[in-house]
Computed example of a mutant assay.
Amino acid sequence: MKVSEILSKDFIIEELNSTDKESAINELIDLFKDDPRIINIEKVKQAVLEREKIMSTGVGKGFAIPHGKTDSVKEIIAAFGRKKDGIDYEALDGNPVNLIFLLVGKDTMISAHIKLLSRISRMMNKDDFRLRLLNAKDSEEIMNVFLEEEKSYLEI
């Protein structure tokens, strides 16, 4: 499964309105309000925020990968948001976060969830990739950055 198979430009926010971690996570999850793949959006929020309490998913270098697993989704869903000014995300390196990739997995699809988290992490650790995401002009260009980057990865 590829990141580009679960992310679409409809679930990309070019510039988040949020100024803190919890509201940024909620802003991304709210993109799925009327999505038929969601059984209970409040339980989705709860799963992601509960995971966040264990340890910040702000992993450093200006990016975060909030994630969770729940039976309140019918399949793995993803969203991406950008905040050029950065958000105080309580990141592990103490720096603000500009790029947030939300991943919510179905609790019976643990292997696919872990593989996707690993792939997203590898992609986001690349300086040039993060820079291209920050400089992309709109959601379509952001999606194209993901598509181009993923061409260099083997199928998982």
Score class of each variant (00 low, 15 high):
M124K: 02
A78Y: 04
I100G: 06
K115I: 06
L131H: 14
S18A: 15
F101R: 12
D85I: 00
P66D: 09
K69N: 01
Y153L: 13
H67P: 12
F146T: 11
L133M: 04
I114F: 06
E52L: 01
K106E: 11
L154A: 14
L16K: 06
I142L: 14
K69S: 05
F80W: 07
L7S: 08
I156M: 08
K84P: 00
H67V: 07
L31T: 09
A136T: 11
D30E: 15
K45E: 05
L7D: 06
S118Q: 11
A91Y: 01
K45L: 08
E155D: 14
I110L: 14
G105H: 10
N17Y: 10
I25R: 04
A136I: 11
E52Q: 01
D20F: 08
R82D: 07
F63L: 06
R82M: 07
P66L: 13
I54G: 00
K21N: 07
F11C: 09
E22N: 11
G105Q: 08
R132Y: 12
K53I: 03
L147A: 10
V3Y: 09
T70L: 08
N98L: 01
P36Q: 06
M124V: 02
I114Y: 02
D71R: 15
E150N: 04
D128T: 15
I54L: 12
V59K: 05
E5T: 09
D35I: 03
E90C: 01
